[in-house]
Amino acid sequence: MTEFRSRAAALLDGAARHVGALGVAALAALVAWVVLSRYALGQTPRWSEELPRLILVWITFIGIISGFLRNSHFRAGILEMLLPDGAPRRVLLALAWLASAAFLLILVVTGWKITLFTWHHQTTAMSLPGGLFYLCLPIGAGLSVLALLLRGGRS
């Protein structure tokens, strides 16, 4: 089962990183185009704020998946400084894992509710469903829960 988990984690991490990289590239290209069109052509595209914001929100929540898989989220490291390796540290790390999972599950549920509530609202510039901005919450948090499960209790 461990080999399956590490393969699945590697696939999920690779997918999240590739999607994130594509999103960052698209964001950079869009921002460059907006700056060029605004200052060189004298016309700002209608979507100049809305589309880059949508992409930025999505790549952020896709990026958290890889952060959970690699355990590379910001940590103060104080636990390692205060407690030697042993049972108390493992208990606190397990509690941190459970707290992360609980928070992510809350994000899945509330993110889905917000997505459904705002789906029929249209964005101003592009007339996209407003829920697209919030759909990244349940997807990113749900895949992050999967990442936590694949990673297990390792810290």
Rank of each mutant, 00 (worst) to 15 (best):
H120Y: 02
E50W: 12
G23L: 15
L51R: 08
G20I: 04
L22F: 14
F133I: 10
T123K: 08
L83M: 11
L105C: 13
L69P: 08
M1L: 09
A99D: 06
H18T: 15
K113W: 00
T118D: 03
H18L: 14
W58D: 01
G14N: 14
A76Y: 02
Y134F: 12
F117T: 06
I139D: 08
A101K: 00
T110A: 09
L135V: 12
A147D: 06
A76T: 13
L143E: 12
T44M: 08
A21I: 10
T118I: 00
R38L: 06
R7H: 13
L149Q: 02
V34H: 07
R89D: 02
D85T: 15
W33S: 15
P138F: 05
W47L: 08
I139A: 13
G67C: 15
A99T: 09
A87V: 14
A147V: 10
D13G: 14
A10D: 15
A16D: 11
L104E: 00
G153N: 01
V34Q: 07
E3I: 15
E50Q: 08
G131H: 07
A87E: 07
L135Y: 03
L95D: 03
S127T: 11
R7D: 10
G67Y: 01
D13L: 12
I78Q: 10
R38Y: 09
G42K: 11
V57Q: 03
A94C: 12
S155D: 05
Y134M: 11
G152L: 09
A15N: 13
A10M: 09
A147K: 02
D85M: 08
A40N: 02
L150E: 00
S100Y: 00
H120D: 10
Q122C: 00
I65Y: 01
L137F: 15
R90P: 07
G23T: 12
R151A: 03
D13A: 11
P88C: 06
W112C: 04
L41N: 04
P45E: 02
R53N: 12
V108Y: 02
A21K: 05
T2A: 14
V145C: 10
L95P: 02
A94G: 15
S6P: 00
L116G: 10
A76K: 02
A147E: 06
S127K: 09
S155N: 03
A16W: 13
G152S: 00
L11E: 06
Q122K: 10
L143M: 12
P84Q: 08
F133V: 08
V19M: 14
H18K: 11
